[in-house]
Design a protein around this nucleic acid. Structure first.
Lengths: 393, 393
DNA sequence: CTTCTTTTACTCGATGCTAGAGCTTATTCT
DNA sequence: AGAATAAGCTCTAGCATCGAGTAAAAGAAG
């Protein structure tokens, strides 16, 4: 209803369990106004007050602001190649219920029917409380909420079929993971956070002071199609030299002379794990010196080589993005986490070499995503709450 | 003071000469509230009402909202390698006075002294009315308003010396030109506008729904240091393969086997003009067919070749940025305007080839900057007004 | 030329938000 | 137990906003 209510709800959502006095300070209002505001929002079943844990400090104890037990909820949905998942998320980001399933039939009408049935069941569990939905999908989402996911054969399908009501947001999985990392993950507090997610390709997004950069048509964050790669390699997107073709599972396969893997994600994980294992073998062998004359297997060191090449391509591209966008933090998701764990030194070396000299003194850190596989659905919940809050009272 | 006042001032600034009724509609308030608001702002010497030109439509004629004749003003400043300029800008963006000069001494203290003297003179002309300053500089500006401009030998100098008061903003020339194009130039109304400016190097910025993306440390828009170029070429920035090294005057010189030019901007303009002229010669010669057997001079066709190579590098990089950032409009400034005029077909061909297939149906247009050389100072004025408005009343 | 329609401006009271001051309450420290 | 501290509560004056009703100024229609 009023600006202050919206601001207060935002503060409580961003910092669930904030004390009332602290919230008032953040809003820059007096305690009188805070009393009024909180009691109004409590009456509207949006907030509840709970006694605070003893702080140990002096002074009259304050209460903490928590979501109302009968308050509004959002449904965060994630649709992947393999299946679907729905989380019921309350103000503050906590998940109350989670249901999931795998696709029996990946045709769009079938998926819609399955998800709608699951949503109906949740409606019955939380009567009248589900007020918005956010959905993460493995493809590009236009501003008009139409989805293209080529590998699933979905072309220009209407996402609003998933949720009849008005407050509905949808986004690409990598973009939403970026939003989640920024709101509750490793990128909390960053001014310009960059999230990169390697799965079938390379996606991601930039988050500027908490605001997800959505781009003009909703297709933002296709960093995988910036030409940081080898111009000789053509990408399924139609361009050449795309960065994505240099860092995903198909890149590893190409370096190893393998055919393009059917499932690049698990292929990449396997290769990376095997490369790390064989490298340990090499190190052990080297440390054992000439104890025995046997040479290390060629395939294994080839795998390590391929991983290093990919890691260098990743680091170099990150440097380019950091130069251009002036990020202060980079988080990696998907296979990027494995790569970072396996070959951090190689990524860092290429990253630092690609940075402008003025940034080298204090290079923005590259961190693994804190939310792991839950990033996209958490981001869906965040974005749903962000759009819902202004509609509440 | 109040939210509505700020909104109204913003509307009037963005659309000077808007009618009162129209402004009320944009703010979503009734005519009663508009009367109140406007009279309050008029009393505060922020707005004035003028009779509207006869619209020809029915109804009681409304008044137009214009800046108050005694209202606040901002100083827009531009400092270049060669000199300085100060514009006094009123609400709505009109320039009342412009003074400029060339550097006699490019040491920072000397420049500060010169600019301060000019500012003092303006203070006397507009007593009590100059309330903010925005300044455009040819270098990187940190969030703490410190400037690095290597070619001028300025390192970590304090920009706030230029303006003692609180409301002071500063920015890189290319970033501010981007802001200006978005506010009043060719990119008005774009959702995500990208501005690229080729001068000594390649700079620019993205503007998301009117908001200039400033980045984490203020160094955003260094797109020239994204590795779209030849990895064999090292950039003064310390990295290799920077895009900037493939599109500026030094790139042309390299392709032509010339030494690096002292002034890459005028060198580039000369080469491009000459290439265009010689190409016309070639075309004329070709159309004259075998009228005479003399061959066209090698140097000239070499120049056209070099221009084409650079144009292709520019187009390819733009495609990468559009893919990654999802821009819906690209504007070119500086030498980019000349390149676009000379070799639009070559830029467009490389651009389209580099776009993802899903964007090729409707590629975001590439346009020359509408504000020309006034872009940076206009952007300085825009940013100064943007920060000043919330402080007014 | 007169009257009607359309659009906008003005007036005035009701409402509700907000800041601020002063007071009360609950806790810890000494 | 009393002082110090931090926070909540209450009340009031002020002001912004909204809505409804009325007045004004122009073009259109007869």
């Amino acid at each position: 209803m009023t600006t202050r209510s919206v601001e207060l709800l935002r503060v409580v959502h961003a910092h669930p369990g904030v004390t009332r006095a602290d919230a008032a300070r953040r809003l820059g209002i007096g305690t009188g106004a805070a009393t009024e505001l909180v009691s109004r929002l409590a009456q509207a079943h949006l907030l509840a007050e709970a006694p605070a844990a003893p702080s140990g400090a002096r002074g009259r104890p304050t209460t903490v602001l928590v979501p109302h037990p009968d308050g509004p909820l959002v449904v965060a949905a994630e649709i992947t190649h393999e299946g679907w998942r729905l989380d019921v998320v309350e103000l503050g980001g906590a998940t109350l219920t989670s249901v999931s399933g795998t696709h029996t039939d990946t045709s769009w009408p079938s998926v819609v029917a399955t998800v709608n049935a699951a949503t109906d069941a949740l409606y019955k569990t939380y009567p009248g409380r589900l007020r918005a939905m956010g959905v993460s999908v493995p493809g590009t989402v236009s501003r008009t909420l139409r989805l293209d996911a080529t590998n699933l054969g979905w072309h220009d399908v209407d996402l609003t079929e998933l949720w009849p009501s008005t407050v509905f947001v949808a986004g690409n999985d990598a973009s939403l993971a970026a939003a989640a990392e920024s709101a509750r993950g490793a990128a909390t507090g960053a001014r310009l956070a960059l999230h990169l997610r390697i799965e079938g390709g390379l996606g991601g997004a930039a988050v500027d002071q908490g605001r997800l950069l959505i781009g003009a048509s909703g297709y933002s964050g296709e960093f995988g199609h910036m030409p940081f790669g080898d111009p000789g390699i053509s990408c399924p997107c139609g361009a050449r030299g795309c960065w994505g073709t240099a860092v995903d599972g198909t890149a590893l396969a190409r370096h190893l002379g393998h055919p393009a893997p059917h499932d690049p994600v698990s292929y990449a994980r396997r290769v990376i794990a095997s490369a790390v294992a064989s490298r340990h073998g090499v190190l052990v062998a080297e440390s054992l010196a000439a104890a025995d004359g046997g040479s290390v297997g060629g395939a294994e060191s080839g795998e390590w080589q391929a991983v290093c090449t990919v890691a260098a391509a990743l680091g170099r591209g990150i440097a380019g993005l950091v130069n251009g966008l002036d990020a202060d933090l980079v988080t990696l998701g998907g296979v990027g986490v494995d790569l970072l764990a396996a070959a951090e030194a190689e990524i860092q070396a290429a990253y630092r070499a690609g940075l402008m000299a003025i940034r080298r003194d204090d290079p923005p850190p590259i961190l693994p995503a804190a939310l792991g596989a839950d990033g996209p659905i958490a981001g869906a919940g965040e974005e749903a709450w962000s759009s819902l809050i202004p509609h509440l009272a």
